[in-house]
Design a protein around this nucleic acid. Structure first.
Lengths: 218, 218
DNA sequence: ACCCGCGAAACCTATGTATAATTCATAAAA
DNA sequence: TTTTATGAATTATACATAGGTTTCGCGGGT
């Protein structure tokens, strides 16, 4: 099942995990305890470097980052992860942040930005929401990745035919378009259906949509 | 062309307009001048009440709201518009805001949250981005609304058939499903294609997707 | 040699349309 | 109120086109 993206996510059913990066040891440990009270597996680091050494677990989860950290800041981590195409939801904490900083973080996709001191419940709410968001995203990612895996088993011709067929062209039109006989198009088309596991043209069209092959617009 | 939603938007090609709500007269006028320097039509009010009396223009645009206003605050306006299903992008300004306030606004969909004093260029950048976002959303809305208009011309039977056909069922399967003869299904199907203006089944499937009739998932 | 792309003949199923007829309900006119 | 008109829904027959598979065969490239 599932798939295999670069160095990232695939599991969606695993037990969720919170990863904390906070240099203040007492707060870090308090957060670990807090999350464990609601049964969340928790991993905690004291700096960005420690976090980036270990790769994130392949399970739904979120990051809880202090904005101000020794070395790379929480916002820097956000940027690094984005560059690495890792979309784990991030919750920021800060004791001395300002509005522009919070706005920048939110625009960059953070799910929340809490000011210290915060209420335990606010943090828990944010984490639960973030994990749910991650779970949904992973589910979506897995579906598309699996589709893409199937799509990659198609030959160049088959991909071409798939694109044209899902556009709504008839076999004869596809044939004219690519300079083949209609019968050959039918054969390729049949192979496409089998390889992609499509049980109907409607199915195939939706797959093409998910793969962003056909124009989503009309 | 286009459509007619509740009490709202339909035009996408019109000249963009910025609507300002700011009680400080000098800042309000400064903003009007600022926006006009880049050729943006601008409408300015001194309070939420004045804004809500006039309905928003049916053209791409955005709102620039002071957070603190006499009567309803900028955030209140955001809430009111959301309740009224109006999604004009909002840019907030504040002189005395705090992080939780900005985060709340951003979570509720604000495109930016500027602290006074802000640089003119920052405001212009925010406004330009917001207008572009609104234009894109309107375009999308219009397409779906037009589709929905067509869909509403379908009879109950035709809608039923459309749903089943776009699921990928064959005519005979649809017939069995709804207890009709296959030929009758064909007739309804043909009417659906003509009424919806679909030139192919692929077309119809995409329409069904846009109308959220068929499961987006597989 | 084998796989892949390509194509033809034959055959069957599915789709689409036209014609025609029946039933039903509702709306408009007498 | 009765009659009439209209439109939706239903089905059948018949025909034409499109879609899909199988079998068989050819040629090029790894």
């Amino acid at each position: 099942m599932s798939s295999q993206r670069g160095a990232e996510k695939s599991d969606v059913s695993g037990e969720p995990m919170v990863v904390v990066v906070e240099d203040d040891t007492s707060l870090r440990e308090a957060l670990e305890r807090l999350f464990r009270t609601i049964g969340l597996r928790t991993l905690a680091f004291g700096s960005a470097a420690e976090l980036l050494e270990n790769k994130l677990p392949d399970t739904p989860g979120c990051l809880v980052l202090d904005v101000r950290l020794p070395g790379l800041s929480g916002l820097d981590i956000q940027g690094e992860l984005a560059k690495a195409d890792i979309h784990t939801p991030i919750i920021f904490m800060t004791g001395h942040g300002d509005i522009p900083m919070s706005v920048r973080a939110m625009k960059a996709g953070a799910v929340d930005f809490l000011t210290k001191p915060f209420r335990d419940q606010d943090m828990l709410d944010a984490v639960v929401a973030a994990i749910e968001r991650d779970r949904a995203r992973r589910k979506e990612d897995i579906e598309v990745a699996d589709l893409r895996t199937l799509f990659e088993t198609l030959t160049a011709r088959e991909r071409e035919i798939m694109a044209l067929v899902t556009t709504g062209l008839m076999n004869k039109q596809v044939a004219a378009e690519v300079g083949l006989s209609e019968i050959t198009v039918k054969i390729h088309r049949g192979k496409v259906m089998r390889k992609m596991g499509a049980r109907s043209l409607a199915d195939l069209v939706r797959m093409a949509e998910a793969l962003e092959m056909s124009p989503t617009k009309r």
